[in-house]
C-alpha cells in the first residue's frame, strides 16, 4: 500500500470513528431522554451518519486509484 493511500485510509478510519462515537453518544442518551425532541435529534444524527458514507466510499475509491497509479509507476524495465 502506498504512503498516500495509507494516510488517507488513516483519515477515513479516524473520520469513521468520530461519526460512530457521535452516534453512540447520542444513542446512549436515548435511555435517559425519550421525547419528540430527542427523536428529532437522533434522526438528524442518523442522517448525518448516512451522509458520512459518501466520504467513506469516495475515500476507498481514491485509495484504490492511488495504489493502482503507484503500482504502475513502480514498474521498471
Amino acid at each position: 500500500m502506498n504512503s498516500y493511500s495509507q494516510d488517507i485510509q488513516t483519515d477515513i478510519d479516524a473520520f469513521q470513528d468520530c461519526v460512530q462515537r457521535l452516534s453512540s453518544g447520542v444513542a446512549s442518551a436515548g435511555t435517559l431522554w425519550q421525547d419528540a425532541q430527542y427523536a428529532s435529534l437522533a434522526s438528524g444524527i442518523s442522517a448525518l451518519a448516512m451522509r458520512s458514507r459518501d466520504v467513506l466510499v469516495t475515500g476507498d475509491r481514491v485509495c484504490e486509484s492511488i495504489n493502482i497509479f503507484f503500482s504502475i509507476a513502480s514498474e521498471e524495465y
Partner: peptide, 27 residues
C-alpha cells in the same frame, strides 16, 4: 497507463474532496 490512471485518480480525488467538504459544511 499512468496518464489513464492519473485521470481516474483526479476524478476520484474530485469526488472525495467534494464529499468531505460537503460533509464538513453540513455537519
Amino acid at each position: 497507463r499512468l496518464k489513464t490512471a492519473g485521470n481516474r485518480l483526479k476524478d476520484d480525488f474530485d469526488a472525495y474532496v467534494a464529499a468531505v467538504e460537503q460533509f464538513e459544511n453540513i455537519s
